[in-house]
Every structure is written in C-alpha cells, then in structure tokens.
Amino acid sequence: MNRPLLKVENLSKHFGSPRAPIRAVEDVSFEIARGETLGLVGESGCGKTSLVRTLLRLTDATSGNVLLDGADLSRARGRQLHELRRKMQVVLQDPYQSLNPRMRVDRLISEPWALQPGTLPRARWAQETVNLLEAVGLGAEHAHRYPSEFSGGQRQRLGIARALALNPELLVCDEPVSALDVSVQAQVINLLGRLRRERDLAMLFVAHDLAIVRHVSDRVMVMYLGKIIETGPKQAIFGAPAHPYTQALLSAVPSPDPLLRGTRKRIVLQGELPSPANPPSGCRFRTRCWKATSLCAEQEPALMARTSAGGLLTACHHAEPDRLSTAAA
C-alpha cells in the first residue's frame, strides 16, 4: 500500500494558559494521498484556520505528529524544516493582503527561489516566471506590474502562481475563493482543478461553501469545535450523512433543481457555538443536537464506521444516515 503524502496523527493545538487552555484543535487525525483533494468544512470558529496554521508549522502543535512524505514535519528543525516546506505551499484567503503591494509580479513570483537557494538558477527566473503566469491564465505582459493593477481574481491567480514556484506536492488552500465574486470563483476553482491534474498535486481545500467543496473534493472532513466529527468520500458525506451536524449543514444548501426545492426540511440549530475554552462534556455537539441523550453528556463518541455508507466515519452515538440527502447529492 502506498504511503500517504500527508499523515496527521492525534494533532492538538491549544492557546492561552495551560490551566485554562483554548482547545482550538483537539486530537485530529487524517491522511491525504498523492493527487487527492481533501475538503475541510465547518462553521466560523470551529478551528479550521488553526488546523491549517499548525499543519504548515506557522505555529507549533501542542501535541501530535504531522508526517509529510514520511518525515515528521512537526519536529523538524533547521535545514530539514527548510527542505520540507518546499513540498507544501499555501494559497491564502485574501488576495488583497497576501501580496506585497510594493513588489512587482516578477519579484513576487521569484521570491520563493531566493528564499530556497539552489531550487532554480537565477538565469532561468525570468522565463520560469512567464511560464507560471501562463499556467494560471495570465501572460508575460503582467510580470512588470504591481498587485494594485489587478482585479481580485487576477490577484488570486498570482498567489497560485507563486505557490507553484517550488513545485510543491501538497497545496493547502485556505478559503481561496471566499473573497471573490461568484462569477470569478468558478474560474479560480476550475484553474485549481486543472493544475491539480496536470501537476498531480494533493490538496487540502478549506471552505465554508459546501457546493464548492463538493465540486473539488474527493473526500470531505466536517469539523466542529476543534474536532473532526464526520469524514468520508464526498458521495457518502453528501449522499447519506449520518451526523446531525452534517445533516444540518447540508439542509441549508439550496438545491439547483427547482423540483427538489422544499422536499428537504431545513434544520435550524439552536444556540451558539460553545467556547473552545470550555467545551461541553462528552459529545461537543450535544448542546445543539436534537438527538442528544444522557449518554452524549457522559461519553465522547469515537470517530468510527457506524452506518453502511462506504468509508463514512462518524462521531455520534445516535448516527443515522439521512437518505433524503441522496436527492440533493
């Protein structure tokens, strides 16, 4: 069996005082194979960004391991960390803030080569910059412009070009289209899909838009209050979700088919997302769940196969597939 490109084992990230920690990420485990796209969804404040920052070693993990191509990224130091970072790059959410407004495009794209000496001879920087611009749908004439001269969608293309400069094996996309107009989102999503196929990229795609995640992902993870509560192939997640929280998320997605509108009951969750500094006992979702019982308060459910849906893992004592989702999947 081939080794996964990325393997995350029991990863946790806590902030604040050890006596009263904010448990932003708690005991998260997953894998991403080469060439695979894994979607990560969840409402604001659930820990998606903290997970991404910990994976990228922008902040150190409290516990757990991150293995990139078999090497322990979470404990790497010095040259080893420098080399591992060449294999994983990030496309950030806001193209207006992720590009230095004082740097021309040719310098923005060539900066990774300057930071990673030996990756590309300086004599080839100009031509490779043009190659990357063309790969993302821009041209050589854009190389001497500044970010302020581009639209939002074009700036995101520049961010993607820069992320590809080191030929990474894993691309982490943190809400890459949420700051763009709807008409531009599809263009960027299609671009990422084409680049993934052409370069055999693995991707972790973080988003709150379930329709986009369904379109780009092979597998999906659903996160709630720092934990993964359901994961599996997208057909299982969107066709027969078993966790009440996933069912609630999907019930809010409008159907493009007018004949199906109104056939599914909208599930409105009561209450607010609890604080990660003081999560509920047992199941973290129980304070907003209509299926909660005393068992849910006493025992935390394990993430495991609980239904016949192929490959679906669910952390719920009362997991039951929502077959009505099949019509909308």
Rank of each mutant, 00 (worst) to 15 (best):
E169V: 00
E134T: 14
R196E: 07
A114M: 01
E169R: 08
M88G: 08
R86A: 09
P117S: 01
L250Q: 04
S17Q: 09
Q187W: 00
P18V: 04
L58Q: 03
V206A: 03
I189F: 02
R19E: 13
E134R: 15
F205G: 15
V52D: 07
L166V: 03
G47N: 07
P256S: 14
V222Q: 03
L108C: 06
P176Y: 04
G232T: 03
R155F: 07
Y96F: 13
C46E: 13
D69C: 07
I160C: 10
L210V: 05
V222H: 03
R75I: 01
L313I: 01
R3V: 05
H144D: 11
A309W: 12
P101V: 00
G193C: 12
A328C: 08
R155H: 09
G118R: 12
G78P: 08
S308D: 15
A165M: 05
K7H: 06
N65A: 15
L133R: 07
R323K: 08
A161Y: 02
S63Y: 00
W290Y: 11
A315P: 01
A76C: 10
I160R: 11
Q154F: 08
G118Y: 08
E175V: 07
K7D: 14
Q127C: 03
L115E: 01
C173G: 07
K234G: 10
R219C: 05
T129M: 12
R196C: 08
S251I: 11
R102D: 03
N167M: 02
S148R: 15
L324Q: 14
H144F: 13
C289V: 05
L40Y: 00
L6V: 13
A329W: 11
A140V: 05
S74D: 06
V136E: 08
G282R: 13
R53C: 10
F150K: 06
E134K: 15
T287C: 14
H243R: 08
V66D: 13
E320I: 00
R86T: 02
V177E: 01
G47R: 03
G226P: 00
E134I: 10
P112Q: 09
A135L: 05
L99V: 00
A114C: 00
T119F: 06
T49D: 12
I22H: 10
T314G: 11
G152N: 02
A309D: 11
L201A: 10
R19F: 11
D106S: 12
L133C: 05
